[in-house]
Write a protein that binds this DNA or RNA. Structure first.
Lengths: 140, 140
DNA sequence: ATTGACTTTAGAGTAAACTCCAAGGTTTAT
DNA sequence: ATAAACCTTGGAGTTTACTCTAAAGTCAAT
C-alpha cells in the first residue's frame, strides 16, 4: 500500500500543505496514520476523499456543505432510508438550482458573444448588460 | 423617472445598505446622483446593474469577476470587439465547466438516492464518494 | 418642535478559508 | 556529518466580502 506524505499529496492535488492541515483541523480529511516521527501519512482512500473535496470546492460548495456531503452515508441501524434519501434529494435540488442559474448565465454569455462581430473595431455595440436584460425579459 | 434611495434599493434587491455602499466603494455600482442633502439616488439603470451583480454573485462569480464582466460594457469603446468576444467566450467556457461538474454531482446524488432504498447492498458501498467514483468510471 | 426613521462618513469588527512564520525535529543526498 | 529538503506545532496574518458602530445630518409625521 503506497502512502503519501503531506507534501506529496499536496503536490498531487495541487493544494498547499497548509490547506491539508487546515482541512484536518476542520474535520474534513484526517491522515490515515502517522509515521514513527509523527509525519502524516495518507492512503489511497484519503486521496480519493481529498479529490472529492477539491472537486466539490471547485463547483462552489463551501467546507460546511462538503462536510455534509461527505457525511451522507447509509447507516441502516441509525437512520431510516427515508431520512438519508431526503437529505440527498435536498442537496440534489440545491445543485439543480445552481445548474439552472448557471445555465442562464451561459445563455447570456453565448448571446452576447453571438451579437459581437469579433472584429478590430471598438466594441460599442457589445453590451453584456443588454444581453442579460434581454434574457430577463424572457425568463422572469 | 423614479429614483430610489439606498434603503429602498436595498429592500428591493434584498441586500443591505452596507453592501450597496461597499459595492460603490469597490467600483461596482455608483449611485446615479446625490440629493441636495447628499443622499444616494439610484435610477432604473442602476437597479438593473445591481440585479446583474446579485445574480452573478448567486452563481459563484466573485466581485473581481463581476467587475470584469461589467467592464465589458463600461469600457466598450476602449476594447476591440475581438477582445470583448474572447473575454466573453472565456467566461462562458468557465460557466460550462462548472455546469458539467455540477451535473456530475447531480447524477451522483440521484444515483445515491436511488440506491438508498434499493435494499440489500452493503451499507459501506452507499456514500456519495462511491457514487461519484462510479460516475467517474463511466464518464471520464 | 420633537420623535422616529432614514441617511451620511470613517473606521473597526467578523467569518471563511486559507497562508505565513517561528522554532524545532526528520530524512536524504553528498 | 552536514546541508537541503522535508516534516511538526501553535499562533499570527491575509483576503474577500461584508457587517457593525458612532457621531452626526435629513425628512415626514404628530
Amino acid at each position: 500500500m503506497t502512502m503519501f506524505r503531506i507534501g506529496q499529496l499536496a503536490k498531487l492535488l495541487n493544494v498547499s500543505t497548509d490547506t491539508l492541515r487546515y482541512y484536518e483541523q476542520q474535520g474534513l480529511l484526517a491522515a490515515s496514520e502517522r509515521s514513527a516521527a509523527g509525519y502524516r501519512l495518507y492512503d489511497e482512500q484519503a486521496v480519493e476523499r481529498m479529490r472529492f473535496i477539491v472537486r466539490a470546492k471547485e463547483v462552489g460548495f463551501n467546507l460546511k456543505d462538503i462536510q455534509e456531503l461527505l457525511s451522507i452515508k447509509i447507516e441502516k441501524q441509525m437512520h431510516s432510508c427515508e431520512e438519508v434519501k431526503t437529505l440527498t434529494l435536498q442537496k440534489r435540488d440545491w445543485v439543480r438550482e445552481k445548474i439552472a442559474e448557471l445555465s442562464m448565465f451561459e445563455r447570456s454569455l453565448t448571446l452576447l458573444a453571438s451579437q459581437c462581430c469579433g472584429g478590430d473595431e471598438p466594441a460599442n455595440a457589445c453590451s453584456i448588460l443588454t444581453a442579460l436584460e434581454d434574457l430577463d425579459g424572457t425568463h422572469q
